[in-house]
């Protein structure tokens, strides 16, 4: 049977495929051409379909936005470090507290080459996270951000338990020797809110779906990464920079 006999011919070809296989092997082989006749259209269609699917995915996929962190964010380490770790974090989130030792370990391994930038990303499900972020920013106003940051994480279970956090946060400010009146005024008048909103907007733009989310320069660190995974990324970034 030949190609072009129409639907009937094709339909019957299926029924008698066994006969035809023997007929085909008996017939002179015409190499690639006959192969293309048999399977070429399928491959062509497959390539087109895959192409369309890839196009759809690329169209749906958000372009990975650049991590742009203004210099005014609180940071730890040398100001002109070659590698920047950006941490999007929430003071009330248990995993953010859990990641603290890992970050400290990493920073201790690169005292001159890496700086850590902290960006607030309080999650709506954490009732006091926003208040804690404001308090930390108010401490930042008096140059004590990291002390306050450490205190918030160390005592997370105390203030996150519920109740009124205001006196607790005030207490931390007192313990750290902050100017009480200035701290209280800062918390009360909401002057840190625009800064906090800007932080959150940065995280939202990066489609952060949880905290903590860490970046080594512009590369996102996988969730649950160990210190060794992060140092591997830092080494790579240092190699790229040199």
């Amino acid at each position: 049977m030949r190609y072009g006999e129409g639907k009937m011919g094709r339909a019957s070809s299926r029924k008698h495929s066994r006969h035809e296989e023997t007929a085909a092997t008996a017939a002179p082989v015409r190499g690639g051409r006959s192969w293309f006749r048999r399977f070429g259209l399928q491959w062509l269609a497959a390539v087109v379909v895959i192409g369309l699917a890839v196009g759809l995915v690329l169209w749906l996929r958000p372009l990975p936005p650049k991590v742009v962190i203004p210099s005014a964010r609180p940071f730890r380490g040398p100001a002109a470090a070659a590698v920047v770790i950006t941490e999007f974090s929430d003071f009330q989130c248990p995993s953010c507290r859990a990641v603290e030792p890992t970050i400290k370990e990493v920073l201790a391994a690169y005292p001159t080459q890496v700086k850590l930038v902290y960006v607030n990303y309080p999650l709506p499900m954490h009732q006091f996270a926003e208040k804690a972020a404001v308090a930390a920013l108010c401490a930042n106003e008096q140059g004590k951000f990291w002390d306050y940051h450490d205190r918030l994480f160390e005592h997370q279970t105390e203030w996150a338990a519920g109740g009124d956090v205001r006196p607790i946060f005030d207490g931390y400010a007192g313990e750290l020797g902050l100017d009480h009146a200035r701290f209280d005024a800062c918390v009360a008048d909401g002057r840190m809110l625009p800064e906090l909103r800007a932080d959150i907007a940065r995280g939202t733009a990066l489609k952060i779906d949880g905290t903590p989310t860490l970046y080594v320069n512009e590369r996102r660190v996988a969730v649950g990464a160990a210190a060794a995974d992060i140092t591997a990324m830092i080494d790579e970034a240092l190699r790229a920079a040199s």
């Binding site: 030949r2 190609y3 007929a23 048999r38």
Partner: peptide, 8 residues
């Protein structure tokens, strides 16, 4: 099924 041509 629609694309495969019968063998020659």
């Amino acid at each position: 099924r629609w694309l495969q041509r019968p063998p020659l």
